[in-house]
Simulated scan of single mutants.
Amino acid sequence: MGKFTISHEINCDAETFWKVFFDKTFNEELFKNQLGFPRYDIVEQRETDQEVFRKVVGQPKMELPGPVAKLIGPGFSYIEEGRLNRSTKVWSWKMTPSTMADKLRQEGTMRIEPVGDKKVRRVTEMTIEAKVFGVGGLIESTVEKQLREGWDHSAQFMNRWIADGKAG
């Protein structure tokens, strides 16, 4: 099982961060055009006084080692269900893969910390687990590498989005 933490500085205040994070246009641009996902659809998003809930169906662009690609299959996708707890300001999510859902687990939490005027640090803690004999470690390390690259790219894109005045 792999557990890791990624942090990035985003050039905005907390209110702007969450506004952009939940913006449909931002997410479609990020996942489809920036990260190259063949499919990314927000299928449900609702808000209450306690939380913001979002359900996404995604098909990531993946570069996998041969044995992992063969195991996972060509049309790999996932369903992500996430919740922002309004009182703790922590986003937590769980992904359910389209293949081997009983053997693959990915979940995590994300929070932001103020680090100055108009700047926050996004801290993401993730867990990846692949219970697959012989290649579990390879799957976990491959997924971690791709997630780190994707989150790095998303931070750069979010900062550009905000700098370009698209945060509203």
Rank of each mutant, 00 (worst) to 15 (best):
Ile128Ala: 03
Ala101Ile: 07
Phe133Val: 14
Val123Met: 07
Arg121Lys: 15
Trp91Ser: 02
Lys119Glu: 10
Arg122Lys: 15
Glu129Tyr: 02
Lys118Glu: 14
Trp93Pro: 01
Arg105Ala: 10
Asp102Tyr: 02
Gly134Arg: 07
Thr127Leu: 11
Thr127Gly: 00
Glu129Gly: 07
Pro114Phe: 01
Pro114Ile: 11
Thr99Lys: 08
Gly134Pro: 11
Gly136Ile: 13
Val135Met: 09
Ile128His: 02
Glu113Cys: 07
Gly134Glu: 11
Lys103Trp: 06
Ile128Gln: 03
Trp91Val: 07
Lys94Gln: 09
Met95Gln: 10
Asp102Glu: 15
Lys119Ser: 14
Thr96Glu: 05
Gly134Trp: 09
Thr99Ala: 06
Ile112Arg: 02
Gly137Lys: 15
Thr109Phe: 03
Thr99Ser: 11
Arg121Cys: 10
Val120Glu: 04
Met110Trp: 03
Thr96Asn: 00
Leu104Asp: 02
Lys94His: 05
Gln106Lys: 09
Arg111Gly: 11
Val132Ala: 04
Met126Trp: 00
Glu113Met: 09
Glu107Ser: 09
Phe133Gln: 12
Asp102Thr: 11
Met110Gly: 06
Val132Thr: 10
Ser98Thr: 12
Ser98Ile: 05
Thr124Arg: 10
Thr96Ile: 14
Trp93Leu: 06
Met100Asp: 05
Glu125Cys: 08
Thr109Met: 04
Gly136Glu: 11
Glu107Trp: 04
Arg105Ser: 13
Thr109Cys: 05
Thr99Leu: 02
Thr109Pro: 03
Arg122Leu: 12
Asp117Arg: 13
Arg122Pro: 04
Thr109Glu: 10
Asp102Asn: 13
Thr109Arg: 00
Thr127Phe: 00
Ala130His: 04
Thr96Trp: 00
Thr124Phe: 03
Met110Tyr: 03
Trp93Met: 09
Gly136Met: 12
Met126Tyr: 03
Val135Ile: 15
Glu125Ser: 14
Asp117Ile: 14
Lys131His: 08
Val135Gly: 07
Gly108Tyr: 02
Ile128Gly: 01
Lys118Tyr: 10
Lys103Ala: 14
Trp93Gln: 05
Glu125Tyr: 03
